[in-house]
Structures are given as C-alpha cells and as structure tokens.
Write a protein that binds this DNA or RNA. Structure first.
Lengths: 345, 345
DNA sequence: CTGAAAGCGCTTACAG
DNA sequence: CTGAAAGCGCTTACAG
C-alpha cells in the first residue's frame, strides 16, 4: 500500500522526500555540483534511481524521439572498429536508439572537460556512453557516475579503478590457444607482436602467449616480444625488427589482424613465403582474414556481438536495472586458415 | 536607443510586452491553443518572430552542446561507406558537430512517417540530414524542406525531383576513362558489372562505358551489361554469368571495388589469372585496392572529401547560407595498378 | 554542507 | 477571448 514507486511521474520534491533532503540538494546532485557530501549524494542517487527520476528535459527528449547513446571510438577505418560499430548500430536499429558519434573523439578525451561534457550529456537527454579502447581516468568515470550516466567500455585502456562496466573477450585464453597451435605445429621460436601495453586486452593476450610457452617448457625471449599499435604500420616495423634478429622467429602471433597485415606485407617484400617460411596467427577474426593471401589463421572474437552487448548494457543500466556481471567476457575461437604450417627443419 | 532586439534573451514576458498582451496569452499562442482571437494571435506571432523567441527547451538544446546532424547510411561494413563516414566524422570533429546515426536506416526510410520524423528532428534541435545512396521520395524531401531542415544526398538513388543538394563524383568521366584504359590495352570484349539501375552514379558509369565503346567504334553487347548490387556477392554471380557466355569478355569494368572483389574470387576459383586471362577495373579507389592480389586498378573517387563536403554543406545550409552549387561533383582519377593488361591474342 | 526563502519562466484554472 | 492570480518544478543566493 505504501509502495515507494507510484504511478505519478516522480518530481524533484518526491525524490527529496524519499532521500530525506531538501529539493535544492537534489537539484545540486542532478547538476553535478560538488558542494554535496558524499553520503548525501549517494542517498540522493539511490532515490533518483529508485524512482526513475527524469528531468523535464529528459522527459521531453524521451517522449520526443528515440533514446540517444554516445559512442566514442577512434576512427572507423579499422576492420576491428567497423565490426564493433556494425554490431552497435545493428542493435540500435532494433532497440530504436540513436547513436551519437563525432564530437568527442578518443584524442579529445583528455583535453575535454569531463564535467562539462557529462553535464551536457545529461542536459541533452543522452542515455549513456560507450567507450571503445579509450583511455580513462578515475575523474572521467566519476563525472559520469555522479550524474548516473551509464558508461560501458569495450576493451579498456589504462583501467584506472574498479567499478565500471566493460565488454571484452577471453584474451588470455585466445593468446594461449594461438600460441599452442603454433607450438603443436612444431614452432619454438614464436614472437608476439602486440598492441599498446596500456591495452588490457593486449597484455592479456601476451600473458596467454607466455603461459603457453611456459606450459611447454619453452623459455620466452624478450627480443621476441614487441608492443606497439594495433595497426598495419606497426606490423611492418615490428616484423622488420624481428626478422633482423640473429635468430629470427619462425612464427609470429600478431595481436590484431591489422598487425598481421603488416607482417604479410613485409614477408611479401622480402620474398618470405607464408606459411612455408613464416607462420602467422592474427587476432580479431575480422572479414579481412578471408581476403588476404594466404587466408589468415586468427583468433576470432565476436566483435559484432560485443558491440550489441555494450549497447544493451548501457540501455539496461539507463533503465536502472543491474547487469548480470560488470565485465562481460565473450569467448574467442581459433580459426585455422592457411597462414600456419610446421616450420622448415 | 529603443531598439526592439536587445541583447538579453527574449523571454515570454518580453514577447507579451511587445505584443501588448499578457504572458498567458503568448503561452497559448505558442502551444497552439485555439482560444485566442485571430488578430491577437497574429500580433503575438509577429512579436515572437521579431524577438526570435525560443522556448527554454530549444534554447537548451541549442546552447547545450554541439550541433547535431543525422546520418542515414546502409551499414558501415563496406569499404565505400567506411571511407565516406571517415570523412564525415573527420569534419564533424573539426566543426564540433555530433553525428547521429542508427535510428532511421535506409531500410526503414519507406516505413517511417516522414512528417513525424522531420518534426522530431526539429524538436530535438537537429541541424540537418545526410542521406547516403538512399531512396527518396518527393514527399520525404518536402517534409524536411517545409521545416527548413537541410538535406544533402551522397550518390542519390531514384532522384524524385530537382531541388535538393547532392554530392557525387564524375561518374560518367570515370566510367569512360576506365573503359578507354581497357580499350587502349587492346580489349574489345569488355563487360560492365554495375550497381542497381536506381543508382544515378552507376547509370552514369554505364553511360561513360558506352561512350568509350562508341567513341572507338566498338558496338556494345547487351549480354555484357549487368546491373545488380554494389557488393561482392553480386560480383560473384555476375562474373559467373559473364564467363558462361559463348564469347566471354576479356575485361570487366566493375561498378565498385566490392564487386571487383567478387570478380577476383570467381577468377581464383576458376583458375583464371588476373590480369593475364582477364583484366579488371574497379571503382571507388578504396584502401581495398591495395590489399588484393593483384592490386586492383580502380577509378578512385575522393570519398573522404565527399563526406566532408556533405557535412559542410549541411552546416552551411543550416546557417541559412547558400551553396555555390546544389550538386557538388568531385573528380575521379583512374589509378592503374596490377589488374589490367593486354588481352591474350 | 545544507536548506529556507526568493526567484524564474512557463502554464493552468477561472472570473469577468 | 483575456489576463490577474495561483501554481508548478526547478534553480539560485546566502545564512547558518
């Protein structure tokens, strides 16, 4: 009878009453002012969430059109991001959500004033934010959390703290599986050409690689482990460096398909045959793997599904529902194509 | 001294004073109530216009963040759209504009109620709309024109009427150049594997192809001209059909790089060598052309630049400025790579 | 940090 | 039809 959630739309005063504070205090919390005690803020946020409070602006934008979710991603010109975005937009069309992209880019993330940015998102009725392999700071996450804007990160860089939602794949297992595949073929001189050390996913792949080596009694060599960018140019640079070693690797595990593309390019220009002279495993399983010659053995991650999951997670959080798990991890799968073979003896 | 337009933002009371009525009356006019005398309504409307009154909602959406432009595009999973979108987002980051994508897709265009859609765009403060190779109806264009929402179309399908802004490339000249390149190599049995007949750009390429043949006294053969989709599967289907002819072509001009990918696929499975047994020219000049084996000779269009131009055009129109030209046409350029050679005698 | 009080801009209900 | 009065929901300024 005395149910908290009644059918009338919750208004600022309702929230204030439930939280046991005054209306101005609720107003301050909503607007991200910092002159509110943490304990009070938490109580108010709980009340906001419980009642599902919406500002007049949000009510308007909600009744006036589809929900809007912001997406921050670094360029669409990689097969990786293309797949993710395809999944996100796919889900957006089904859920009738608008995806907003373009203003804040990963490059602008640091320069941007998070407080202002988050505030503007609230004011324009944005439902949440998806970050793709972006750097984050605790301050950034705080800015959004304080305003109850859900943030979901896909393949986080530099995770600054616990307590945010993320989507990823079984990178450790994938790295291990790729490396074990090469070991089973008979390789022992296996290099890892990975992405930035700031990328959790790349580090996890590296550790999977190390675990596989260790599990087979192969000692790892520092010269065989290079970290760079997830792109083709780094694949080129890294491969040149590896092949210039006194004892070059007979197989390369690339941290992304784009890196693998660079490996193939160097192999071609040097007249090295893949897989006869050099075995190669990529990561991501993008459509690219079917278009290279030879077709690329790669650890596939379900990128489209990951994109869809990220958007769905944002929408669930925006509705005040809890996620089953703060970190959603999708299974990778080694797809063996034509770029791996036993080493020449 | 007694200027009507002062610097303070016009508020309901200001309008009321100017119109010589009370605030409630202005409120009624704004909200479309009918209990207002016609004469009064007209006076109030004049005052609203003169002061440039905006509701708090409109003010908020305008001042609260970057301008928003809607983008309707069919999937990002083609090299063509990826390049366009890269250009659009590139420009968006510079101009501080948000690009909204996801709700209305080309597939939804017909089903959607344009009037409602356009109205919602006005209400949520959208500055304009970019359509990419989308079908349009006159009714759709009217809905937006009536509300002063600029629409810019990239590579229009089914252009229903004059009087809209568009961005394209010199498709006729590009088609002619591609075909002449093949003729100069000695080919006379040249096929055109194009996109849908509804696509202006594909039809223009076809006419360039026909003009080149005609200019060199080569008669065109209906069996050598196929229209389909701008994608790889159609490249596969079309090539099979062409190669099954009693007198198959020795060269194929594909209406897009994606179609050309399908041609390469069929050639590979049939053991036909490109360019020795079959010459191939693509269209678009996407990064794909550097990744195929052999690298693909293609008519490049500056897709990124076209995307940037489309967004800039929308923003100019939104500011009330006129465009230099309703149709912006960018130059194509034939890039000769490794997929074309003289025919075997 | 908090909230009573005042204020803002718009809308509603109703007397004339 | 019109507008004084009351009201709504939120925010601001400031005293404690």
């Amino acid at each position: 009878m005395n149910q908290v959630s009644s059918k009338v739309k919750p208004v600022l005063a309702t929230v204030a009453a439930l939280a046991g504070v005054s209306a101005p205090t609720v107003s301050k919390v909503i607007n991200g002012r910092d002159d509110v005690a943490d304990a009070t803020r938490i109580r108010v946020q709980a009340a906001l969430a419980e009642l599902g409070y919406e500002s007049p602006m949000q009510r308007r934008t909600r009744s006036t059109g589809p929900a809007m979710v912001d997406l921050v991603i670094d360029g669409l010109n990689t097969p990786y991001s293309m797949e993710l975005v395809t999944g996100i937009l796919d889900c957006a069309a089904i859920e009738d959500v608008d995806v907003v992209v373009g203003n804040v880019t990963p490059a602008k993330l640091h320069r941007a004033n998070h407080e202002e940015w988050a505030q503007r998102m609230v004011e324009s009725g944005r439902k949440g934010l998806i970050l793709v392999t972006s750097e984050m700071t605790a301050a950034l996450l705080d800015s959004f959390e304080h305003r109850n804007i859900p943030v979901v990160v896909i393949d986080p860089l530099n995770p600054p703290r616990q307590g945010y939602s993320s989507v990823g794949a079984t990178n450790w297992a994938g790295g291990k599986e790729a490396t074990e595949h090469l070991i089973e073929l008979g390789h022992t001189r296996i290099a890892y050409l990975g992405g930035p050390n700031a990328a959790e996913c790349s580090v996890a792949r590296l550790h999977g690689y190390l675990a596989a080596l260790m599990g087979h009694g192969i000692s790892s060599r520092p010269a065989y482990i290079l970290a760079g960018e997830f792109n083709q140019p780094f694949g080129v640079v890294g491969t040149r460096q590896l092949l210039a070693l006194e004892e070059p690797p007979t197989a390369i595990f690339a941290g992304s398909d784009s890196i693998a593309l660079g490996v193939l390019e160097v192999a071609r220009t040097l007249g090295l045959r893949v897989p006869e002279d050099l075995s190669l495993v990529g990561f991501d399983g993008t459509p690219l793997t079917e278009q290279t010659l030879p077709r690329l053995t790669s650890v596939a991650q379900p990128l489209q599904e990951m994109g869809r999951a990220a958007l769905r997670a944002v929408l669930r959080l925006a509705k005040g529902e809890a996620l089953d798990s703060a970190h959603m991890e999708f299974a990778t799968e080694l797809i063996i194509r034509d770029s791996t073979a036993p080493p020449r003896v």
